[in-house]
Design a protein around this nucleic acid. Structure first.
Lengths: 194, 194
DNA sequence: TGTACATCAGTGAACGCGCGTTCACTGATGTAC
DNA sequence: TGTACATCAGTGAACGCGCGTTCACTGATGTAC
């Protein structure tokens, strides 16, 4: 049977949303199309009416994840006191809550190494998404020129992603909190002041 | 037929060495036991005479990788001029050469997110390996107390791993070099001086 | 020193399973007349 | 306004493939006598 345009758009959204979460939780290589589709309530055969390939879904899911987490961080920044946007962003990024919920968190810390293993075409699409993300956050970054602010973003977000990713190895919640606290202090000192 | 003890030890080493490379190059989830074993020149059925499970191999391969790269960085540190050990380590870690060869590079930047997805028993073994690694490099880190030097390692290595991992997304070699250069400057200023 | 036997690294086949992708088919909806 | 037809989201089955793990079997080596 044929379905309405809204119907298709709604399912497209659902696939993206489920994929963005599942990929971040279990890794892109370990998340099958069949699993994603059945979580949506569809059969895996229907997948190719929505996406060209798994890599295509992967890029779209990364975009979706960056958009979700970017939006959340922007809100944090905007509701922070005058001049405290960047510290607020860092505090939130390096929070225990973020470390404990990879499925709804930063896609770099969850899938970073996979990006570099994708074929060049895919990598370029992801690169463009990350570039847009930096543009989005350069606004909140102190610095004289736009290029300086962008360069700081190019350094801060990957660094924090590395810390978050490694904090997730620790099974002990106290150690996890301590690592994150030390990192928050360091990055706020290095990027949000002076 | 039965084989000599040296024969077994040699094949055990070969499996570890191939796995350490293959896992870092393609990801642990995408590297099969069959592939690893056939690269060694054996059939996959023989794998379980050497390791309990794939997760067991994973941990041993991580240990192997940390040992290889740790050894290389130690040499860099030891042949650096007086007081320049840490800058030398940072320069090497954030080099184009390292970014271009994940298969023989830092296992954090190659497999980091996978660590956090492993069952607690596996994660604890990896945590212990990372702790030993920090102890190894705290020696070269400036700082008054042992705890201070360890804390700096806990921050520096994950941060650099994040930068390296994200630098690998860029397809453009010039951009890659620039990101790494900016990061080298930043981390040397933050960790190797003052 | 020589013989009998136990060990066990490696093989080859099998287990059930999920993978990404393709495709003929369905039937309600949107479109053209 | 009513009818005929094209569209296409979703199904269900199939494609060949590799996955992690198990196991009966092999035969040269190490061990015990």
């Amino acid at each position: 049977m044929r379905y309405s345009l809204e119907h298709k758009a709604k399912n497209h959204e659902r696939i993206l949303s489920v994929a963005a979460r599942t990929f971040r939780e279990h890794g892109g290589d370990s998340s099958g199309i069949g699993t994603v589709m059945s979580k949506v309530g569809l059969k895996k055969g229907g997948f190719y009416r929505h996406f060209d390939s798994k890599d295509d879904l992967f890029v779209e899911a990364v975009a979706r994840a960056l958009d979700e987490t970017g939006r959340a961080l922007e809100e944090v920044a905007k509701s922070a006191p005058e001049g405290q946007a960047m510290p607020a962003i860092i505090e939130r990024y390096l929070s225990v809550g973020h470390a404990n919920s990879p499925g709804s968190g930063c896609v770099r810390a969850a899938l970073g190494p996979e990006f570099g293993r994708k074929p060049p075409v895919v990598r370029q699409r992801i690169e463009a998404l990350l570039e847009a993300y930096r543009e989005r956050f350069a606004t909140f970054m102190p610095g004289r020129t736009r290029e300086q602010r962008l360069a700081k973003c190019r350094l801060l977000f990957p660094s924090m992603a590395g810390v978050l990713m490694m904090a997730r190895v620790t099974t002990n919640p106290r150690k996890r909190e301590q690592i994150l606290m030390e990192a928050r202090n360091f990055f706020i000192k290095s990027f949000a002041e002076g």
